[in-house]
């Protein structure tokens, strides 16, 4: 039995005259950890942003756990999704942003409890317990009362991860989570993500430039180029024996760089 949780079926995304995703077919299995690599402008972040419903699609169908994300059934026809449908679908996904996007006016604790309280309807007490567990997990138990601007970038991103996890999503989307960090802070964030990758149920989709890390944590690596998957395989296959010339060029450029 194949257990596909994410399915892109001939998905096209255009920004004006620019085609970012070009008839993309892309599947992710439940619990799979998939890394997306590729040159800038290849559409890798767009895949995550479409899943988080931050960008709509121009053509094709995206499904999450068997249900269309950007469409819904109405009178037997597939029509554009309403806000209510998007809200229902969104609970399955959580996102970690390149720039963290923490709420600057809320304490670390409140950044994590706000969603569970307001959206999931948890009691303040339950949300607080959940947040404290998560802060423990990301190693920031003693920073709960601080504001984001009082933390380093690496700490802020760990709060960002805890905030997304507090909503208990089935799929976690990481959009270049370490690209905005000083080099010495990258490790602490990657360690947290690697620990998460140990969880069997959680599906993870990660866009990154950290090749060594991609190799360690992913079940599968997809190389994106010009809005399509140019090549994909296990980290072993893709990194040691790429079939495509374009993949070899890219890997050479990033690994030597």
């Amino acid at each position: 039995m194949s257990d596909t949780i994410i399915k892109f079926d001939q998905v096209v995304k255009r920004f004006g005259a620019l085609t970012v995703l070009d008839h993309l077919d892309f599947n992710v299995q439940r619990g799979e950890k998939v890394t997306i690599i590729g040159p800038s402008g290849s559409g890798k972040s767009t895949v995550l942003r479409i899943l988080m419903t931050l960008e709509s699609i121009s053509e094709g169908v995206v499904s999450v756990d068997g249900e269309p994300l950007w469409h819904e059934q109405k009178d037997g026809k597939l029509v554009k999704a309403s806000e209510a449908h998007l809200r229902k679908m969104r609970v399955q996904l959580g996102m970690v942003f390149q720039q963290f996007n923490l709420f600057p006016h809320m304490s670390v604790l409140r950044n994590i409890t706000e969603g569970p309280v307001k959206v999931l309807g948890l009691s303040k007490q339950d949300a607080r317990e959940r947040a404290e567990e998560l802060l423990e997990m990301v190693g920031l138990a003693n920073q709960a009362q601080k504001y984001p601007h009082q933390l380093s970038g690496g700490q802020q991103q760990r709060v960002g991860i805890a905030r997304a996890l507090a909503m208990r999503p089935k799929v976690m989307l990481f959009d270049e989570p370490t690209s905005a960090l000083d080099p010495e802070l990258v490790g602490e964030v990657l360690n947290v993500i690697a620990a998460l990758a140990e969880e069997h149920d959680l599906t993870m989709l990660l866009v990154t430039h950290e090749m060594r890390f991609a190799r360690e944590v992913s079940d599968r690596v997809c190389f994106f180029d010009k809005g399509k998957i140019k090549e994909q395989g296990t980290p072993e296959e893709l990194f040691t024996d790429p079939k495509e010339e374009r993949t070899r060029e890219f890997l050479k450029a990033v690994l030597d760089g």
Partner: peptide, 12 residues
């Protein structure tokens, strides 16, 4: 970015 973070947390 703030509006996107709010959307990702499924705020109305």
């Amino acid at each position: 970015d703030q509006f996107e973070a709010a959307k990702a947390l499924n705020f109305t």
